[in-house]
Design a protein around this nucleic acid. Sequence first.
DNA 1: CTTTCGATGATCT
DNA 2: GATCATCGAAAGG
Length: 194
Amino acid sequence: MSRRAARDPRAIDFDAASEDVARALIGATLLVDGVGGVIVETEAYDQSDPASHTFMGPTARNAAMFGPSGHAYVYRSYGIHWCLNFTCRPAGHGAGVLIRALEPRAGIEQMQSRRGLADSRLLCSGPGRLGQALGITMAHYGLPLDRPPFFVAAPDAALEVIAGPRIGISKAMDHPWRFGLAGSRFLSKPFANG
DNA sequence: CTTTCGATGATCT
DNA sequence: GATCATCGAAAGG
């Protein structure tokens, strides 16, 4: 456990395995320049995982995931979308958590404007949508999560978290490393169970 | 409800 | 040159 996590009960322990961090982030609050909400869907990736950007070892793109934990890893998806990840560091390997969806709470008008969309349900329900709604760009690459423009706080109560296979990958599809808030209507896709 | 497909550009082989 | 940690529009039941 990091010093910060030990000191502050509302801090996330980003030094844990990405799988544990992904689970712990469900119900956490994420704000970027005051805009955001409650994380309801995440996915875990690490270097032993063929679906991970770090599977082949360090490169220019994935450098953040080989750096300190608790920082932002941003990548461009399909040439169109910006996707936001939080870095972890189990055993010093490249690992991270993809933030896939959140329930809008703060700065909803700004998110609607960035997305060109009024429906709050579709504002941040998916990594590309979330990136657009929160205004994520490469300018956020490598920034620490414990100070502005980022704000991250763990949930203050225990929540029911469900797990299932990850979405949009073609390798290691058997691993249940997608996590979600049970019953949330802001998921990018429903889970097989509830 | 479902499936299909184009957009669009960095990254890696 | 192929492959994407995606999205949204279009077409078909």
